[in-house]
Amino acid sequence: MSDLYREHILDHYQHPRNYGTLENPDRTFEDSNPLCGDRIRIDLKLADDRIVDIRFTGRGCAISQAAASILTEMVKGKSLEEVKQLGAQELLEELGVPISPARRKCALLSLKVLKAAAYGLNEWPS
């Protein structure tokens, strides 16, 4: 029916995986796209620099929220080093729908937040 809003995207949007927050997370980061109001927060629980648990909360368009849900599934169990190496292309491929230039920011917001958490940032350096 729709190129962009395929079933798995809508499923992740309407039933997000790993949704919520962690008590006493080892890392937490939040960011937003001021242009569209998309917002994502990611909490990480670490053991030996490996993600043993991950949760996200957020609001915004289906693409940003579905991408966050998919991303949490992709990285659970991965090391921080692996997360730092994760490229935008890998997430876009996992999304599996055509993302136009105008929607790239939506699709990649969660990755940006996750990377900041992986690097242990509390806020963006200015």
Binding site: Y5, D38, C106
Partner: peptide, 22 residues
Amino acid sequence: DVHPHDEAAILDQNGVAARAGH
């Protein structure tokens, strides 16, 4: 509670150019 960007994207797939945003 559909985000306007998602609405506009579906409009766009139907050839309808409308604006979503602030």
